[in-house]
């Protein structure tokens, strides 16, 4: 167990370093002078030179990378070139919004997908199963930004049930979270459906029925946990990859989260902030993997004793 944890830890560090390295060098390859961005297009050559000196822009790229790593090792993510705000602070103030949005979206889609998947598996080939399949396929093919815009237009602007944008209370997150959740509900309902169908055919389900367990009990106690085992892995990856969707949704609804920060930083060509947001999403991926591992041990006792 200890060696396994140790191995995971090493891999996590390697993943993070790799991400930092790749992003740093890719950013470096982007054409355009950062100093121009900072000082504005009308700045004098002297000012530009000064900025170059201040941010070591003329040093060789590997040297600047070493500098950045050294900074990172001291827990410093640097300052935004544009606003001069510490990147860590920018991330932290926006973190709650993004976390709340993501968590709410995950809760929504899991809470919908689980019963949908389980019931369509139980009533296989019924009209309920088939219509769910159609809806799921449609929801799978919706692009995130379009869906967010549509939801905003209909439910916020036309019907006025929700605020069009901004973030004042938890309730304001419902609509953005729902537009994220809808993207995944269909897929997860099908995924859980497929696993459920397989599990429902297994001898222990027959044994549970032979015991006299009710169908609800068979479905949600005996079958669901087994059917969720393979789903957990994919869920972990999707939660980590959700940031892509969050990016669109936060921007459409003008929510002050990491997603809007990331988009701004790219438009501003603000390297420290870009690095910060990328690092944040890499940490999210690694963290999600850890969470999946822990969840696995809890949901499937066979894993724990195998390690």
């Amino acid at each position: 167990m200890i060696t396994r944890l140790f191995r995971r830890l090493i891999w996590s560090v390697v993943t993070l370093l790799g991400t930092v390295l790749l992003t740093f060098f890719l950013l470096n390859a982007v054409p355009g002078d950062v100093a121009r961005v900072i000082a504005g297009s009308k700045a004098s050559p002297d000012v530009i030179k000064e900025i170059h000196a201040k941010y070591h822009l003329d040093d060789p790229v590997w040297q600047r990378f070493a500098l950045y790593l050294n900074q990172l090792a001291h827990g410093d993510l640097g300052h935004s070139y544009v606003t001069d705000q510490p990147v860590a602070e920018a991330l932290l103030t926006r973190l709650p919004t993004t976390i709340a949005l993501t968590a709410l979206a995950v809760v929504m889609w899991v809470a919908l997908a689980v019963p949908l998947g389980a019931l369509t598996a139980r009533f296989r080939d019924s009209w309920f199963d088939r219509s769910t399949l159609v809806v799921a396929t449609v929801s799978l093919s919706l692009p995130a930004f379009w869906l967010a815009r549509m939801m905003q237009y209909w439910f916020a602007y036309k019907l006025g049930w929700f605020p069009i944008g901004f973030f004042r209370s938890f309730r304001d997150l419902l609509l953005p979270a729902a537009s994220l959740a809808i993207l995944f509900v269909g897929y997860y309902a099908r995924l859980i459906h497929t696993n459920m169908v397989e599990v429902l055919d297994s001898p222990y389900i027959r044994a549970a029925r032979a015991k006299g367990a009710s169908e609800t009990r068979v479905l949600f106690k005996h079958a669901l946990r087994n059917a969720m085992i393979p789903v957990i892995t994919i869920l972990g990856m999707d939660v980590a990859g959700l940031l892509g969707g969050v990016l669109f949704v936060e921007n459409v609804f003008a929510l002050p989260g990491i997603g809007t920060l990331a988009v701004q930083s790219v438009f501003n060509l603000d390297p420290p902030v870009i690095m910060g947001t990328v690092l944040f999403s890499a940490i999210l991926v690694v963290g999600a993997n850890w969470a999946v591992d822990l969840l696995y041990g809890w949901i499937d006792p066979r894993i724990k004793s195998a390690s």
């Binding site: 001898p203 029925r209 015991k211 006299g212 367990a213 009710s214 087994n226």
Partner: peptide
Amino acid sequence: RAAELRQIRGGLVSYVFQEPGASLNPV
């Protein structure tokens, strides 16, 4: 009916199956 059937299953008639490993819920 379903409810009566559940009383019978396990209560009046119980089963032991061929593959004990697969007939016990692994989790």
